[in-house]
Amino acid sequence: MSDVLRAPAETKYAEELDWLESIDDSPKPFSWRLSPKMVRLFILGSERADGLDREISQKWFGDRSFVERSIVTLASDRGLLLIGDPGTGKSWLAELLSAAISRNSTLVVQGTAGTTEDHIKYAWNVSMVIAKGQSRESMIPSPIMTAMETGAIGRFEELTRSTSDVQDALISILSEKYISVPELQGDGKETGDNIVFAKPGFSIIATANSRDRGVNDLSSALKRRFNFVRIPVVTNKKSEAEIVRFRTEELLRRHAIDLDVPPTLLDVLLQSFADLRASAAAAGSDDEKLESSLSTAEQIGVLEDAVLHSNFFGERTLTARALASSLVGSLARRDPEDLAIFNKYLHGVVEPRSKQEGGCWPEFLDGGRDTIATLS
């Protein structure tokens, strides 16, 4: 699917999934395409001890126990709720799990204030209803209903951003494992034609932003129907470097860009985020913190911006100046608060470091100062 901007995981890694399925002789729950062991291997990558004839790439970087608990939950009768700060890879993990288990990660409902009960149950094709009346043929199933009918994994993004009515409707689906269609009752229709039952293998993976607490808190009844897996912010520099490098390589391939990312500049980016996180942790008020979440996803965005700018408008090589400009431009979302925080960081941390260590830091300092001067 080279003509698609972003292919789903089951398409992107189709050849790998086919190969894993062909050698998989372990027990599989329900209608799963891969066994739990193979699902874990697909997500976390292979090791020499696995004894495979080929290498399976690591696609999600995090603690093995989070992946294992997620897989075990999906093999049970309970839904899975991945909760954590923005940019911790919750949605990517949900996509990989759905791709490995069902070979379909596109059955997604996006939770917003405008999400209604119809988005998780069904709607009607008005023209068909007018012409032929309400029937199964004129019904438009939601992604969740489609997942139920096919025994697949349905996904619900940003669950806490949806209203209580939508959350209450989800309780019934998770508890009863069917959706009633009252419009099809009576009129001599066959018994059961007004109910859509979930097939074995159906489950729901929901994600929730831990910073959205208080927006639409989950009821205790809904919480009981989910197993919670909390995804922490990646703070290990080695793991974070692997994630950023993995995503950057994907970006370069997608854009067919032949541009090198020097390891020294990657270290500068990681250290800058570590400094800014430490500053945010020590801040006494929100005004002293950057509005950005400073997540790994933010780092990828900063590096992506710097790489593209260097490729299209620079000398086709990534520089410390371009990286600093991208950092300030991407993360300074409030004026003048965020610019003042960056200015303090450059003078208090980067300037002394550039004098002591040299390397890329002096150029990084100049690039940051110039960008702040431009934005001020």
Rank of each mutant, 00 (worst) to 15 (best):
S2R: 13
S2W: 07
S2K: 09
R6I: 12
T11Y: 10
L17Y: 05
L17H: 01
W19Q: 12
L20W: 06
E21I: 08
S22I: 08
S26I: 14
F30G: 02
V39C: 05
L41I: 13
I43A: 01
I43E: 01
S46C: 10
R48P: 05
R54T: 12
W60D: 04
W60M: 01
F61G: 02
F61N: 11
D63V: 09
E68F: 00
E68C: 01
R69I: 11
I71N: 01
V72Y: 05
L74D: 05
A75E: 15
S76M: 14
L80M: 13
L82K: 04
G87Y: 09
G89I: 06
G89D: 07
A94I: 05
L96W: 05
L96Y: 00
L97A: 04
I101Q: 02
I101L: 00
R103G: 03
S105A: 06
Q110K: 15
G111I: 11
G111W: 14
E117G: 13
D118V: 06
H119D: 14
Y122K: 14
A123V: 04
V126L: 09
V126C: 00
S127T: 15
K132N: 12
G133V: 08
Q134V: 03
S135T: 15
S138K: 08
P141T: 09
P141M: 07
S142Q: 09
T146P: 10
M148S: 11
R155Y: 14
E158T: 10
T160V: 07
S162A: 15
T163H: 05
Q167F: 12
D168N: 15
A169C: 14
I171G: 06
I173A: 07
I173M: 07
L174N: 13
K177V: 13
E183M: 04
G188M: 09
G188Y: 11
V196E: 11
A198C: 12
P200H: 05
G201F: 03
G201Y: 06
S203H: 03
I205H: 02
S210D: 13
D212E: 06
S219C: 08
S219H: 07
S220H: 05
R224P: 07
R225C: 01
F226R: 04
F228P: 07
F228V: 13
V229M: 03
T235A: 08
K238A: 14
E240T: 09
I243G: 05
R245F: 04
R245I: 02
R254A: 10
L259D: 03
V261H: 06
P262T: 08
P263Q: 03
T264A: 08
L266A: 01
L266R: 09
S272D: 07
F273G: 00
A278T: 11
A278F: 11
A282S: 12
A282L: 04
S285D: 11
E288M: 02
L290C: 05
L290V: 03
L290R: 11
E291H: 11
S293C: 11
L303N: 01
D305C: 02
L308G: 00
T317D: 03
T319G: 01
T319A: 03
A322F: 00
L323A: 03
L323M: 00
S326G: 01
L327W: 10
L331K: 07
E337S: 06
D338W: 02
P352G: 04
S354K: 07
S354G: 09
K355G: 02
F364S: 01
A373F: 03
